[in-house]
Amino acid sequence: MSKRTLATLVAGLAILILLPFTQSNYGVFVLCSWLVYSISAMGLNLTLGYAGQVSLAQASFMGIGAYTTALMTMAGVPWPAAMIAAMVLCFVIGLLLGYPALRVQHHFLAFITLAFNALVVLVLRNEEWLTGGTYGIVGIPRPELFGLQTQKPLAFYFFVLALFVLMAVALYAIIRSPWGRAFKALRENPIRANSLGVDIRKTTLLAFAIGSSYGGLAGSLLAQLTQFIDPHSFGLTISLKVLLMVIVGGAGFFFGPILGALLIVLAPEFLRFTEGYYLMIYAVLVIVLMIFCPTGLLGLVERARTALKLRQNPNATTWEAGR
């Protein structure tokens, strides 16, 4: 990592630390949702952007994480244990779902995960004895850290920010590890990767399971943020929303899902003045983006940069001009 990159990251972090002080309670709430959805989208980006598998079940993992955390903390289990349990459970379920599902791959994986997500919502709604049914669960406690309560919006924001940074660093380490490089090799050319000794199935499966546990953590944070969960908050539309975040930001780019989550979470704020038309405008913007830049916004940035380099050095091939 170059000095300049490091400086930028420090500056970014400083902004994230200072920003909430300028915001109203609602503003802080929006920032928290952005960070929470970013964690979920980062996980999906690992599955989709790096391992190349379309999953439509990210919301169900958020749901499993949220209900695990809610039920455990409300039963008196300390929050760190509950949150770790949520992540581990999602990891295991990710393995169990992924093992048979990854046999079929591509669009069939999307169909299976779509069905899985719908099934999870049905179970959450119908098993009232455990989940509170369609009414959901209210009054989920927020964590207490070194005697500090995070009941106040600002305190909770910093709790979320800390976990966000931790998860981002962990993801960076995963992608940079030899094992993470195998993901990339896999996405670019599965057959070559296989011949180089990459166990496709095992690698993809692990990527899917890790991505799922990111979803689980995001879910447990969401439960604490809103202090209420119900089955509908984890339906298929939410999975599609997280997918949209990854695609809009740029799948396969480290900062893609974070940027995507920012835009999707903030979209209603900026389009609110259009009143009843806002969902229509939002839909049109997504269609236009897909038509003109299917690789997402960061893909657009990269394309512009490649074009610029090509102009500066017309002899370079596209490949050399790229990263």
């Binding site: 930028t8 970014g12 920003l19 915001q23 900062f255 903030l266 940035v301 990269e302």
Partner: peptide
């Protein structure tokens, strides 16, 4: 670097 910067700049501008 630029990508990071760009994301942060956009984040700031938006929020």
């Amino acid at each position: 670097t630029k990508r990071a910067l760009a994301s942060i700049a956009i984040a700031m501008a938006l929020s």
